[in-house]
Design a protein around this nucleic acid. Structure first.
Lengths: 262, 262
DNA sequence: TATCATTTGTTCGTATGTATC
DNA sequence: CGATACATACGAACAAATGAT
């Protein structure tokens, strides 16, 4: 960048103070100055100690919270998180024994599945190339008993897929493994593709999944393909990102088989 | 704007105004009130229109940015994002043809790999059970030509693995496919497991990957297993979450084979 | 090239509400 | 109940980026 200014040194826009403070405290946490479970100094204390305003301290704290380094609770303080190790795993593997499919998510259902009718929209519509087509939507609330974490699962069954097996339309809220089984019984040779992204939650998602604010949400879209790679189903999993990991076994494909970009 | 009633609101803390505003604008965007590429009303305009302070408007805008609905640029305004469809795909598949391995990331290397010596730490150490063991670290900068997005790739080669094949230690910065090839040539039967999580970036990551702030970062840790499921390598991929997706082909395993929880 | 209005980014101050202990 | 700490909200000022004049 051949900028040649007069006499000052504007090469770098100065790092904001809240960012400097966030980096400093982040380094201290990673260096072990605070043990997991410890409380950081209060906002007022930091404001006084570093000579910055309360607002600046809050901006820095918000950064640390998003990085997953601390967990902030009103009336108590900022609690330093433990190692990223013991986090909860959400296993995305699929296995079959004989004619039965099996999942390994490691989460339980909370309450009854809720079946509604919708039309394809957004990313699922794009992945399946089914814009505005009709579908059953089966919504489930999941939770992890060990951590108390919640997640949301939605299965979208296009009406064209429901027509492949009589039970699909009459019992769309059957367990996911059963849905897979009915499709393979109908002669479909199944394969799957997962698409993973992340974003901050919408307000209703934050409430439904009781997410601490500032923490991202992981979204996994699983497309079930049948014979000829025809898309049959789309599942959507929304899970908290902080202290959680999605786990995928990756098997090499024999032939060079570039999954086409949509 | 439906003002929250004050006479009776039992057991519920009232929704903050910035949240109400964020939800409202988010609904308007999703309902199509603003076309992709349009600018939202300015902060001052919103502040006047909805009768809230500028700070409240900014908090709402920050929410929308994290949701991936808008892209905010200083001096210009808040630009409504397009559909989540044409986002960039990062394909995590591995394929083999004969004795050669192949990846499908769809990103190019920017500059030379940087080789350093480190010790295992954090999540990689936990996944491989190699706390404090020595390793080569090979760092690469990746970029996607179409979108200009950047990502970071790091391969950790434990010294114990480097000892398995003479070339590994002398040429740790060989392409990833070549590393795989040398391990399988050494008699290892390879398999992989990916662990995906997300968080907000650290300040240095934000600078290195030129991330718009408030947008999360996806982290994918790929562990290469050899014969007897012994961990051999750990790769770490850091990629922006907004407008990007990690894509995994999921193949059913024949035997019920629950990847053990660590 | 330089200036200017607009718009967002950062930082301060102050006040009040609410959760925790 | 009170003290402490975080959450929300208002106002004000200046800095920095953008786009047009």
């Amino acid at each position: 960048m051949p900028e040649t200014p007069t006499h000052t040194e504007p090469l770098e826009t100065p790092t904001p103070r809240y960012m400097q403070l966030a980096r400093r405290v982040a380094d201290e946490i990673k260096a072990g100055k605070y043990a997991p479970g410890d409380l950081l100094p209060s906002e007022a204390e930091m404001s006084k100690r570093y000579g910055v305003g309360k607002h600046t301290v809050r901006a820095a704290i918000a950064e640390l919270r998003g990085m997953g380094l601390i967990d902030v609770r009103q009336g108590k303080g900022s609690i330093v998180r433990g190692e990223p190790g013991p986090a909860h795993e959400i296993n995305r593997a699929i296995s079959r024994s004989g004619k039965k499919w099996k999942l390994h998510e490691g989460m339980s259902e909370a309450g009854e599945p809720c079946v509604t009718r919708t039309t394809f929209d957004g990313l699922p519509a794009h992945l399946m190339d089914m814009q505005d087509q009709d579908a059953f939507s089966v919504d489930r609330q999941l939770y992890a008993p060990e951590t108390g974490a919640r997640a949301a699962h939605r299965m979208l069954i296009p009406l064209s897929t429901a027509a492949l097996a009589p039970d699909l339309g009459t019992e769309p809220d059957a367990p996911v493994e059963v849905i897979y089984g009915r499709l393979s019984d109908a002669g479909e040779s199944l394969s799957w593709t997962d698409h993973v992204t992340a974003r901050l939650p919408y307000p209703d998602e934050r409430a439904a999944l009781s997410l601490p604010d500032g923490s991202p949400l992981m979204l996994a879209y699983r497309v079930t393909h049948g014979t000829d790679e025809r898309p049959l189903l789309c599942e959507e999993l929304r899970a908290p990102a902080v202290a959680h990991r999605l786990v995928f076994p990756v098997w090499p494909t024999r032939a060079s088989r570039p999954r086409q970009s949509v």
